[in-house]
Simulated assay, not measured.
Amino acid sequence: MTDLALLYEHPAWFKPLFEALERRGVDYIARRPDGHFDPADFTPPARVVFNRIAMSSFLRSDEHPIFHGVALLDHWRRAGARVLNGPEVLAIDSSKARQLSLIAGLGLAIPATRVVHRIADIEAAAATLAFPLVVKANIGGSGAGIARYDSMEQLRAAIADRFLPTSVDGVLLVQDYVPARNGTITRIETLDRAYLYALDIAGGGAFDLCPADACQIPGAPIPMVASTPDTALREAAEAIARAVGLDVGGIEVMIDDRDGVARFYDINALSNFVAKPLDVLGWDPHDRLVDYLIHILEETR
């Protein structure tokens, strides 16, 4: 049986990981979530399966693999595979509402949020918050499905025209627009539920702050620098990773410029790491990830 299977969807994001595995001589197969699976066939594709399904996959295909992937990963785990970032992690990754509930349940601050599944409930939800606010898709990726509204009149017009974000699961978040201090968010990457590195990403109010190679627009790179969050932020990110069961992933936080409170708002189980890591970090996190994968493979022999 093959040692390692990587379940992935994006055609370009994982080339650095594939290359790192090949440099280390790791036996692996790269598998797309296409075709079909037999729920009565308990033959896993490998001893260890690493989930790399992106939430933004719905942007690339209406027939996205997000929900299919949850079932497939769960099936492979029942078949005896060790699944990293498994079905329960993918389920949290695919629900910002569940993410915020989990974070708040740990006693950490989040943006004030109301969760709805009907357009008819958006105005009443917004009335409990202050403007500006955002309406956000429960399943998003690369900043998709987020719109800002500066007044109730503007929001009512969008509701009347049905000119609102949509989510592939029908769930929307009505959320306080948090002015991030210096227009910067911090993305804390974790590996095996422990701090790996962090980036300060200057978005200037933008919502798409993906730091990886494949997200960069030629001539318009997203400004980002390596950072060292204080101990409280690092420990909070690790607590979130433990609560999720996150083998590898990014946790995003911003400092609310109004009151200085650190507000956590996103858990991303698809960590394809920073573009040009040697320039930004001085080392390549793919090497640490491969170390971790090799450790898991040794555990499962």
Rank of each mutant, 00 (worst) to 15 (best):
N268V: 09
L278K: 12
K276L: 05
A220G: 06
P39N: 02
T2M: 06
P45S: 10
M254Q: 12
P229H: 05
D287Q: 09
D150P: 08
I159H: 12
A20G: 04
A206T: 01
P16E: 08
D256Y: 15
A236Q: 09
V171K: 11
L246T: 04
R187L: 01
D208V: 01
H286C: 05
D247M: 02
V290I: 06
P33A: 03
A232T: 14
I217T: 15
P223V: 09
G143S: 07
A232F: 14
E9W: 15
V89K: 11
E19R: 13
F50Y: 15
N182V: 00
H36K: 12
V280L: 11
R78M: 04
I201S: 09
A112P: 07
A237S: 11
A198T: 11
I146H: 13
D62N: 03
P111I: 03
P229N: 05
A126P: 11
N85A: 01
K136G: 00
D27R: 13
T128F: 15
Y177Q: 04
E189Y: 15
G69Y: 06
V225H: 06
G141S: 06
S227M: 01
Q175C: 06
I251L: 10
A214H: 13
A91S: 11
G141Q: 03
L73Q: 06
D176V: 00
P65Q: 12
D27L: 04
P218I: 05
E63R: 14
L289G: 12
F67T: 01
D176G: 00
I66H: 12
L297T: 01
P33R: 02
K136M: 02
A137Q: 02
A81I: 01
L59Y: 02
I119D: 15
M254N: 05
A126R: 10
V89T: 15
A180L: 12
